Amino acid sequence: MSEAARPTAVDEAEAGPSLLYLIKRAELVVRARLEEMLKPAGVTALQYTALTVLERHDGVSAAQLARDSFVTAQSMADMVRALESRGLVRREPHPRNRREKVIRLAGPGRRLLADYAEPARRLEERMVGELVPADVERFRDALKSAHRSLS
């Protein structure tokens, strides 16, 4: 990069916080609001995330559920035990490998997700409330693209 094209400290200061910082800040506030919203149900934001993953991809291994829920395999093992003890999920033998287990969303887990679908939708609407619909779609596409680029 030529000296003329290289951003200066003034340019960077005018640009504001880094995107990494802004994304993390948004993630933390979303998680805090989810925790508040889910408190009456007695589930955490991470448990709720795992349940929503199962809603979209039921019958996955614990390892896949951990990857899709952004937690470690050990954390997922603990989480599945907690969710299973509450009857929100169940473990069943894998249809093609009886030694392996898959995790499925149980009826109470489906009901919990149905009960919180509207509050979650309102939280998301609040998050993007200052954006026009076209900007919301661009934001969604930009986040998907960022994820693909880093995956």
Results as ranks from 00 to 15, higher is better:
residue 23 I to H: 12
residue 79 M to E: 04
residue 106 A to S: 09
residue 12 E to K: 13
residue 9 A to R: 11
residue 131 L to D: 09
residue 82 A to C: 00
residue 59 G to T: 04
residue 103 I to H: 01
residue 103 I to T: 09
residue 134 A to W: 11
residue 121 R to E: 11
residue 117 A to E: 13
residue 107 G to S: 05
residue 49 T to D: 07
residue 90 R to M: 04
residue 129 G to F: 01
residue 87 G to E: 05
residue 137 E to H: 08
residue 15 A to C: 09
residue 142 A to D: 02
residue 2 S to Q: 05
residue 23 I to K: 11
residue 15 A to W: 05
residue 133 P to F: 03
residue 58 D to F: 02
residue 66 A to Y: 03
residue 121 R to H: 11
residue 124 E to M: 10
residue 55 E to C: 00
residue 111 R to L: 11
residue 116 Y to E: 07
residue 113 L to C: 01
residue 106 A to T: 12
residue 147 H to S: 12
residue 99 R to Y: 08
residue 44 T to K: 12
residue 96 R to C: 02
residue 114 A to T: 09
residue 113 L to R: 04
residue 22 L to K: 04
residue 20 L to A: 15
residue 48 Y to N: 01
residue 43 V to N: 07
residue 122 R to Y: 08
residue 126 R to D: 08
residue 126 R to H: 01
residue 54 L to H: 06
residue 37 M to D: 07
residue 125 E to A: 13
residue 119 P to H: 04
residue 121 R to D: 07
residue 11 D to A: 11
residue 51 L to F: 11
residue 37 M to R: 14
residue 12 E to S: 08
residue 131 L to P: 08
residue 142 A to V: 06
residue 105 L to E: 03
residue 2 S to H: 03
residue 30 V to L: 08
residue 132 V to G: 01
residue 92 E to C: 04
residue 34 L to S: 00
residue 10 V to Y: 10
residue 52 T to D: 03
residue 128 V to A: 08
residue 142 A to I: 00
residue 62 A to M: 05
residue 36 E to I: 07
residue 109 G to W: 08
residue 146 A to R: 01
residue 84 E to D: 15
residue 115 D to T: 10
residue 149 S to N: 04
residue 5 A to K: 08
residue 134 A to I: 05
residue 30 V to Y: 01
residue 138 R to T: 13
residue 106 A to H: 12
residue 18 S to N: 01
residue 51 L to C: 10
residue 49 T to C: 08
residue 98 R to M: 13
residue 59 G to F: 02
residue 134 A to G: 03
residue 46 L to E: 13
residue 122 R to W: 07
residue 35 E to T: 10
residue 55 E to K: 11
residue 86 R to V: 00
residue 122 R to F: 07
residue 67 R to T: 07
residue 67 R to S: 13
residue 92 E to V: 08
residue 88 L to T: 07
residue 58 D to C: 02
residue 5 A to C: 03
residue 135 D to C: 14
